[in-house]
Every structure is written in structure tokens, then in C-alpha cells.
Amino acid sequence: MFRRSHTPSAGVVIYVDGKPVHAAAEESVAAAMLVAGFTSFRASAVSAAPRAPHCMIGNCFECLVEINGQPDRQACLTIVSDGMHVRRQAEEPGP
């Protein structure tokens, strides 16, 4: 869905569901995942529908992912770091 306009000068590698993803230093986890081609970040809480970033500034909470073992982190507000482990959040128990 997205591409980079320029090749970043410095980069890091993060792991999304175990898959290595090259990211630009200082960019958000959400940006890195979008440009790597992830279209779904999590399953919605009630109907388990796929969801992905909508606002990119921390308001919609659609980009919640597990980062280094901690669930429900906002990918758009979290900066990548080398070796970071990200897991997309699968279906959670509904009511």
C-alpha cells in the first residue's frame, strides 16, 4: 500500500511475527510495518475483523500491536529499535 520515496540513510531490523523487517531509524513501528506491506495490524475486539492504522497520531488505537511481549502498544507512537519483536494481535476473547 505504501513505498518509501527515498532509501533511508540508516536502518534497523525489527521482527514482525518473526519476519525480519527493515526500518528507517527513528521511524514509528506503524510506518515500518505499513511500508513492509502489512495491511492488517490486529483483529478487532468484537468481530475479529482486520484493522490497520487510521489516524497515525495516536488517537484511533487501531495500530495496537504487541511489542517485546507487551500487548496493546500504539505502533504509531512507538519508535523502532534494532531487534524489536512485534506481534500482530490476533483475535481476543469477545463478550
Binding site: M1, R4, A24, F41, H54, M56
Partner: peptide, 26 residues
């Protein structure tokens, strides 16, 4: 349909552009 992946704010796309030099390829 506004909850589907691939639906974003105009400002969200601009943020990706400004902050990360990332632009749509579709």
C-alpha cells in the same frame, strides 16, 4: 466501510509523508 484497512485520514497519510517519507504505491 471506514474501519477497513486501507482507509485512513488525509492527515494520517500526510504524517507518513512528513515523518517517514512514505507515500502510497496504490
Amino acid at each position: 466501510g471506514w474501519t477497513l484497512p486501507g482507509v485512513m485520514g488525509v492527515g494520517a497519510a500526510q504524517t507518513l509523508f512528513k515523518a517517514s517519507d512514505i507515500v502510497p504505491n496504490v
